Simulated scan of single mutants.
Amino acid sequence: MNSTTISITSTPPVPTVVRGDSAAGIHQAREAARAFTDGLNPAPGPDMADTLVLVVSELVTNALRHGGGRYTLELSAGPDTVTAAVSDPNPAHPRERTPDLNGGSGGFGWHMIRRLTHHLTITPSPSPSGGKTIHARLPR
């Protein structure tokens, strides 16, 4: 009798860090999130990858619009989760506002982020200049 053992290993990916300070940074952050999920082993399903790209896009957009005009995105993964951490120089926490259904001025992002993530935390920056980091965790 011939016995075969199959071993599937999960390689912890190296965290990905992206920095931006303009609207072009939103596209760069989306591309980094997509490349990050494509490089995971085992790869997450396409729905999870799309959700991560959307969450990253919203977090980065909010950092640029409301957080001081620049951001640092760090993507990391564990065996069961993927985390997007977005830092910006504004210490103020995001606030929910009523979405603008007619004028196109936004208000949807924070609602979406809260709904799509498994766990969401906001931590103040340890730097003397202030700021915060929003950690959005999604199930892998």
Rank of each mutant, 00 (worst) to 15 (best):
Leu59Asp: 02
Ile122Glu: 14
Thr51Val: 09
Val17Ile: 13
Ile134Thr: 13
Ala24Asn: 13
Ser129Ala: 15
Gly20Trp: 03
His111Ile: 10
Thr98Tyr: 06
Pro42Gly: 07
Val17Trp: 08
Ala32Thr: 00
Asp80Ser: 14
Ala77His: 07
Gly39His: 02
Pro44His: 05
Asp88Trp: 01
Pro128Trp: 06
Ala92Leu: 12
Thr98Ile: 13
Ala23Ile: 10
Asp100Arg: 08
Thr16Met: 09
Thr5Asp: 13
Pro139Ile: 14
Met1Val: 15
Asn41Pro: 03
Thr16Ala: 10
Ser22Cys: 11
Gly68Trp: 05
Gly130Cys: 07
Gly109Lys: 02
Arg30Glu: 10
Gly39Trp: 00
Phe108Ile: 09
Met112Cys: 11
Ala43Gln: 13
Phe36Met: 01
Gly107Ala: 08
Ile26Cys: 09
Ala35Tyr: 03
Ile122Met: 11
Asn41Glu: 13
His27Glu: 15
Ala84Glu: 02
Ile122Tyr: 12
Leu75Ile: 05
Ser105Asn: 12
Arg95Glu: 14
Thr72Lys: 09
Thr133Gly: 05
Ser7Met: 12
Arg30Asn: 08
Trp110Met: 09
Met48Ile: 11
Thr117Ala: 05
Asn62Ala: 11
Asp80Phe: 11
His135Met: 05
Pro44Lys: 05
Asp21Trp: 10
Glu58Lys: 03
Phe36Val: 02
Val55Ser: 00
Met112Gly: 03
